[in-house]
Simulated scan of single mutants.
Amino acid sequence: MEIVWLLASLVILYFGAEGLVSGASSLAKRIGISPLVIGLTIVSIGTSAPELVVSIKAAMNGQSALSVGNVLGSNFFNIGIILGLSALIYPLAVKRQLLKLDVPVMLLATLLFFLFFFDSRISKIEALVFIVFFVSYTVYLLIFSKKKNAPENDHGDDDGIRLSKHWLIDVLFIGAGLAGLVYGSDLLVENAVVLAGRLGMSEAMIGLTIVAAGTSMPELATSVVAAIKKRADIAIGNVVGSNIFNILLILGVAGLIQPISAPDINYVDSLFVIGISLLLWVFMKKNTRLGRWQGAAFILLYLVYFSVKLSSM
């Protein structure tokens, strides 16, 4: 029954995030935010909402390993599987802003996490630094990047974002999506922990694999659909923005609620995330697009990581 409820929770999380992303994206389009900025902020925050709720609830329940494992595992899954599959479907053009600002911010956030978490703990002060960093980046992105990139990203109505008939419908979708995310996350955490115990898996392992992949389903659906529609700005922006959001805001909020201590998660997991993030930056710097062979490389690296985790059980 735990497996049945776990699958049910993933379905609820998917539709909850879908409602949140649809409503938030439509609302953002009404006020004139460009597609790339929507991908980096509204869409990435919306699709990362399952990670946010799951990690916060895990922190409140004293399950720090599940909280941190969920974030690290999701970030690795986002680049390895989601961006890998998206690039395999359609080569993704890389905008200058991603190379100059957003991917370096993602790398810096990941390195900052490695530094703070080297002792397997994140204090409230360190969590506050995460939140200040996130707020500063988001404010800069919304105020300055919108003006700078508006002409470049102006695709009119052909931006892959459906505009609803009225802003009240957007608000309704956002509210219903949040409700689904809260309920779905409750089911996910409760049944994932029970299942982990039955399988002899640690909280860290279940967070790094099953929960991380499960809570990343909204990102997977969003980026793959964006790639099919040849909307590279949404596909890449969603992944990069989600990874920034996961570390800075999710662990920031979770760490403020209760100082995080997760000795079961070692520096090797952090190094894998740093490595694949650095590889993404190198691929972007050398080419103007992420091609199919780069996508295959990301997927292969994730499979290697997953095999290493399974062999360590």
Rank of each mutant, 00 (worst) to 15 (best):
K285L: 14
L163D: 07
M106V: 03
L301Y: 11
P263T: 10
V182M: 07
G73I: 10
K286H: 12
A176L: 15
G184P: 09
A296Y: 06
G200K: 09
L163S: 02
A49V: 13
N61H: 01
V129H: 01
F134M: 05
S67M: 08
L163H: 01
S9M: 12
V240P: 02
A8D: 03
V189W: 00
L195Q: 14
L220E: 10
T110R: 00
L142R: 00
V11S: 10
E2L: 15
K100T: 14
F298D: 12
I228D: 10
Y137G: 04
G200Y: 13
S261E: 10
T41N: 10
L52S: 08
N287R: 07
G200E: 09
S277W: 04
I257T: 04
A109N: 06
S185L: 08
E190R: 07
S164C: 13
P104T: 01
I206K: 01
V253S: 00
V94M: 14
P218H: 02
F144Q: 11
S270R: 01
L249G: 00
P259L: 02
G32Q: 11
Y140C: 03
G255L: 03
D233E: 15
A109C: 08
L128Y: 03
L220Q: 05
L111H: 06
E190G: 01
E2F: 13
L27P: 07
S64R: 05
I234A: 06
L195V: 10
Y302Q: 09
G73L: 04
E190N: 13
S123A: 09
W293G: 13
L85Y: 04
L27H: 07
G62K: 04
F116H: 01
K286G: 15
L199S: 11
F245A: 00
G295Q: 01
S74F: 05
L98F: 13
M284K: 10
S120A: 06
M60K: 06
L181Q: 05
L13F: 08
K285A: 15
I82F: 03
V268A: 15
N153V: 10
F298M: 11
L98P: 02
K29M: 07
N78K: 04
A58P: 01
I79G: 03
H155V: 15
G177M: 09
A59K: 02
E51V: 00
V189C: 03
L208K: 00
G23R: 03
V105L: 12
L279C: 04
S136C: 11
N243T: 05
L108R: 01
I81E: 07
S307E: 05
L27Y: 13
N153K: 09
G156L: 13
E219Q: 12
T41Y: 08
S164H: 07
G241E: 00
Q63D: 14
I122K: 02
S34Y: 08
L66K: 03
S277N: 08
I125Q: 01
